[in-house]
Design a protein around this nucleic acid. Structure first.
Lengths: 196, 196
DNA sequence: TGCCAACTCTAGCATCGCTAGCACTCCTGT
DNA sequence: ACAGGAGTGCTAGCGATGCTAGAGTTGGCA
């Protein structure tokens, strides 16, 4: 019994080692540099070991992506909490989102650009994913009614995602990033009541 | 002289043949199915011929992308022209953009998702690229001042791009697409003056 | 102590983008 | 008309990719 447990524990540790190594390699040199051979060398095992843990390279990237969502959710939450006024939180959270994408491009790629087969807009989606989405929702709550909060969150998310991906692909001039971000946030802020 | 011209003409025709075949193959089976071997077989030449026309596979994709921008610009223009009221054009053009991405996913990938090394936000960018961007700008013009038109166009574009890419990647539920699109357009419409 | 099961590694497959070098074609000048 | 030569397309192959089959070794159990 105990020996079985030890083996499972060691297996879990090795699996985490693989994910961590993949993430480190991707963040250092980009995903195109993450080959199964290099990854195997990093964790000091042979290639087939990777396939005893994950179905393929995509599954490894998906595991990294889940870690990324946890980090993103934490960043967004920190930005929201530290905001002086709930109405200012939207700008802070949006900026945090953009910063995350800029600071961790490889992680962001795994989460969004790649084809990783994660369940997203369903209850089966990993909890960290709902958490990240929830932070955006909370930041938007003071600015809209409950009935359209979900859809509005999705749309804001799309706007942020578009901004960072187009900029990173060289499709948008980086020097105007702040202005675009401010403009987007402004358009998603409630202005009907008071212009204070 | 004449014979030299004929050769150049034939070369140009063959180059166009390669681009057309690449595009057809990509639209039929996706870019991962477009290998240099299959492409060469389609155009009934050997692989190295491709490299006498293009520096590599990326360059072929870039050529397809330019064609895509021309198509997109045409679609957007048609939507804008056919709009009854200039103030309604924004919704029409936005819907046309989303439709384009949905109807021609492979083309859209070549234009935006892939790393194709095209000059974008510079004067060196292909004219068709400015044309497509200009259509979005024209649709937005009735809704904002000239000083922020450029930045606003970039931001709307990012919003549209985010919507279609996240939806195609399974990150957003398709059934709410129309509502998200309407919401985005609404947020980019001028509402300060009249609620008519 | 001997055996069996589980596990890991070596080696290799099919395919990828890309290229070197040979062979052929076709225009040119005498 | 015909030999020479420049240019062009092909065959074959390189290094690298993701992934897998089968051999070989290790380690716990009777």
């Amino acid at each position: 019994m105990s020996i079985q447990e030890r083996r499972e524990r060691e297996r879990a540790e090795r699996e985490q080692l693989i994910v961590t190594a993949a993430r480190a390699l991707a963040e250092a040199e980009g995903w195109e540099a993450v080959t199964t051979r290099r990854l195997a060398e990093r964790v000091e095992y042979s290639q087939p070991v990777l396939y005893s843990h994950f179905k393929g390279k995509d599954a490894i990237m998906a595991a990294v992506a889940v870690e990324g969502f946890a980090d993103l959710a934490a960043d967004l939450r920190a930005a929201r909490i530290s905001a002086s006024d709930p109405r200012h939180a939207l700008a802070e959270v949006s900026a945090a989102y953009a910063d995350f994408a800029e600071r961790r491009p490889a992680l962001y790629d795994a989460m969004f650009s790649q084809t990783v087969n994660l369940p997203f807009a369903t209850p089966q989606a990993p909890p960290v994913l709902h958490a990240a989405f929830g932070e955006l929702s909370q930041a938007l709550r003071p600015h809209t009614g409950d009935d359209e909060l979900g859809t509005l969150t999705e749309t804001l998310w799309a706007g942020l995602h578009g901004l960072v991906t187009l900029m990173r692909g060289g499709r948008l001039p980086p020097e105007d990033h702040e202005r675009r971000l401010a403009l987007l946030v402004n358009r998603f802020s409630q202005r009907s009541g008071d212009p204070t």
